[in-house]
Amino acid sequence: MSTSQPPSAPSASPRTKPAEVRLDELMTAAETLFMENGFEATTIADITRVANVAKGTFYHYFASKNEMLAALANRYTQQYLAELEKAVASCPQQDWPARLRTWIKASVHTYARTFRTHDMVYGGHHHHERDNAEKSAILAQLEHILLQGQQQNAWYCPNPSMVALLLYSGVHGATDALIASPQLDAESYAHELADTCLRLLPPPPRK
């Protein structure tokens, strides 16, 4: 008589995914569909079908497509900020010119690489809107670099918030010009743009 035991059944995979994974998959499905088909043409049923979830799952997280689009805009900004912060963190801690140069170049490369997503999530935004929280978060990151450089005598910048606004707008507009001219070399363009921005910051006055 055989004493061998029958092979055990493979362990079943979890029937439910963690909430954060399900949410990320739902948002990624929506982002893909919005970019492929347009926001208006995409239905909630389309999103849940691609994400392979029940329609009720969508309403567990979002009240509407507009609310999901706002969440996608926030996710885009957080990813954008994280990339810039990572790039800046690679510079020597007290080398503020290097940090500003790196911030500008990383901003150019990140925006140029992700502008289709940017245009999709911010399609209804206008640059003159005063309550643009996403823009404010990026400005705060840039203003911090300018303020620290001012305090460490890297340059003369008595009004970091105003200079941050000018640099942000200039870098954003210059990158739009780069996107519209694919024949340009992005690395050389970003390097020259950083040089130009740094020349706008004079050295501290002699005491």
Rank of each mutant, 00 (worst) to 15 (best):
A133I: 06
A140M: 10
R130C: 05
K135W: 08
P92H: 02
R113C: 07
W103V: 15
E83A: 06
A98F: 06
P158A: 04
I145A: 03
D95I: 07
D131R: 06
G123N: 09
Y122M: 09
A82L: 08
R116T: 15
I138A: 05
P158T: 02
L139Q: 12
L147H: 10
L100Y: 02
A82H: 04
H126L: 14
H128V: 03
N159H: 09
C91D: 07
S161L: 05
G124V: 01
D119V: 03
V88W: 08
A89L: 13
L139Y: 11
G123P: 07
L84A: 09
A106G: 04
N159F: 14
G149V: 10
A82F: 11
A140I: 10
K86R: 13
L84F: 03
Y122Q: 12
D95H: 05
D95W: 01
I138R: 11
W155V: 11
K135T: 05
S90D: 15
L100M: 02
M120D: 00
H127A: 15
I104Q: 09
T117G: 13
F115H: 14
R130T: 00
L84V: 01
H109R: 11
V108M: 09
Y156T: 11
R116P: 11
L84T: 03
E134T: 09
T110Q: 11
A133M: 04
P97Y: 00
I138W: 07
W96E: 05
A106H: 08
V108A: 03
G124Y: 10
F115D: 15
A82R: 01
N153T: 04
S107W: 10
H125E: 13
H127C: 14
Q141F: 12
T102V: 14
Y111E: 09
T110A: 07
N159W: 10
E129G: 13
V88S: 06
L100Q: 00
S107C: 11
K86M: 08
Q141D: 04
A137H: 08
Q94F: 03
R116E: 15
W96M: 10
M162W: 04
R116D: 15
Y156R: 13
L147M: 12
C157E: 01
E83H: 10
L147G: 11
